[in-house]
Design a protein around this nucleic acid. Structure first.
Lengths: 211, 211, 211, 211
DNA sequence: CAATAATCGAGACGGTACGTCACGTCTTCTT
DNA sequence: AAGAAGACGTGACGTACCGTCTCGATTATTG
């Protein structure tokens, strides 16, 4: 649903009308995204060539370039439109277990087949502001919105202090996960998640005595 | 200094002897490393080409290939031999301030001119295992060794519990920094460092009730 | 009027009737021919693209393809429908001056703005039999018919021998002009025309002694 | 021997020395020229693609582009270096037969396998000044030099007038041949050559009465 | 007055070739 | 033996046009 930067055809056409000319082929679009995911998994981001994607998708190279400005944008679209990433935020009645459950879902993705794609996205984004922005806005932000809700419920229940800095909290929770994911210096498992989560939530609960 | 994998000329020649033929040109080596850093900063890892490095360094392409097996190896060498990255670990008598000082040194580097190179290294490393390994072993690990010492001093002083998981602690402290650095979703300043540090150290001090 | 091969709409409809559906747009046709001439002059036959013609003429590409089978057909149509190439054959009472006048008209065209188009037509025709055929039949032949008349008048008057080979004569007169026009090795002026004309007509008048 | 415009390596190196770097591969050059001729004959100039030439010659596309600026230059080189075009100027003691023999050699080439290449050269030259210049200087001029000698011998022998315009004469002789060759409106045979030759030489011999 | 039918513009489609760039290897002469 | 220079075969790049194809809109004739 939509390309990286701004959808050219399917996007801001709320008015009604219809662009003139032959409409974009939805079939080609699907085929391209599918081939991208397939090849991305087979050869990785660096070795991925638009040439190969077009060939695999039985599509003209120009059709790829017509709709995506670079490989990065294409990969981002392919990834993000690939199963709306079954990440749910549970509501168990406890922040601790809510967050632990959610974080474990995340590391399952990161450690799975799609982890390489996330790494490619973040990695590619380091030399492509558009790409990291897309990753942030289309992958990170939606989940963060849900995480806000989880934290706010906890505040309502009195589990967390009223003046909590939500972003700080979430960075403290997820930062260590992404660090291990990207640096690969240590393992990324449920035990790690549990411990980070406890550490951070314990820290938040403190009446911040020594500051 | 040495290259990423194993130095070919300056390495295991401790005995004495001397290879026959013209010796390696130290000037060429310096020039190559310098040009690599310069271009890495300008265009990022992905766009960096050996062709351009050789041209910029006024050096034959073969001279680069003779001494470094990959672009990754060259970049790692260049980065790590660049100004021994003035990161010192202070000893103020308090973990809290020791770590805060150190973390502020780090964000000064990340936000400065060399930040682009670190980002390029981590980003490029996502599609190049050799590169992320070099970054980890030659940049992260040495500093981590010093951080261990800082934490152990705190344990000795009774500031932190004896059974502390050092790696977990350091990931909890540095993870949020790298996350903001890489995702660029929020600012990376002294206030953030202070708060993360307080949060984590407070959390560690808790008698871990709910676990 | 009409296309190269056979006109599809304006052709064999002499009877009366009328095709159903929307009639062909005369305005589009004119616009296409005009743009073709313009671009042909600017960039030559080889570099001429239907894409550019359609864009310049503010016309859909399909409208061009609907009415002309090749680029060659289009170019031939455009050229030949352009200003009916004001070449008249005078009748001064002398072959010599009749032909000189006519040949001077020709070199004025060749040296003028339309010369580039003639060159493009002949040049393009070397790799496109349809094009050279169109040039021959629609540009060369009509003028040759008139030239025959001029020569026949001269024969009647006794200026030229009765058994004259008309085509040979005309090739001897015009060949040198086209050679200089196409090879560009020497200038193409009135003096040259005069001398060629005298040379050939003198030669024709000879009682062919030495053969 | 040498490229169209100016030979880059083998050319103006009269001083002595040697360009640095790996020398140009003579084998690649030969292979490219050979494949060019072969494909030119098979598919014609318009359909000839550099891609196909490189593939046929087992050579990188870049190697072609390194040495020839366009298809035209390549074709010119290929043609002109293909057998130094066995065109000899005989010396029979009579202009008439000298020229007839030579002109018959020419039409044998034009009507043969290589005729298509000449047509492509002249045709392509109509939209490429460099190409027509190359054709003129490397194909036409050398033969014209020899033709001058033939004519001068005739003048010495008293067959032709002393004040003869050599270029005019040669254009009068060859122009009709090229016209028939390019326009293809009539046949190009020995009889035509004989008649043109007689016509022109007769014309030259006239004491130019009517001028 | 509708229905039918061929046109029009626009522009996306699967292709082919373009001319460029960098790859990593090689061949030459010079140091 | 290493140096620079730079040509080599390879292969992907991103672009330009090819000729074909859908679209909705327009403009005629026919029922």
């Amino acid at each position: 649903m939509g390309t990286l930067v701004a959808d050219k055809t399917l996007g801001a056409n709320g008015g009604g009308k219809r662009a003139p000319g032959r409409p974009r082929s939805e079939q080609a679009r699907q085929s391209i995204l599918h081939s991208t995911l397939k090849l991305l998994h087979d050869v990785g981001f660096a070795e991925l060539s638009i040439e190969a994607i077009a060939a695999d998708a039985d599509v003209g190279k120009a059709t790829v370039y017509r709709w995506w400005p670079h490989k990065a944008a294409l990969v981002a679209d392919a990834f993000l439109s690939s199963a709306e990433l079954e990440l749910q935020f549970p509501d168990t009645g406890s922040v601790r277990s809510d967050m632990k459950l959610q974080m474990k879902q995340l590391i399952r993705i990161l450690r799975g087949r799609r982890g390489g794609i996330v790494a490619a996205l973040i990695g590619g984004g380091q030399s492509d502001p558009e790409l990291i922005k897309a990753f942030r806005e289309r992958f990170v932000r939606p989940r963060r919105q849900e995480a806000y809700a989880t934290l706010r419920r906890a505040i309502e229940r009195g589990e967390l202090p009223r003046n909590l800095d939500l972003d700080l909290t979430l960075d403290a929770l997820y930062g260590p996960i992404y660090m291990r994911f990207l640096f690969r210096h240590d393992c990324l498992n449920a035990r790690f998640v549990n411990e980070i989560c406890d550490l951070v939530i314990d820290g938040l609960a403190m009446p911040s005595l020594g500051r």
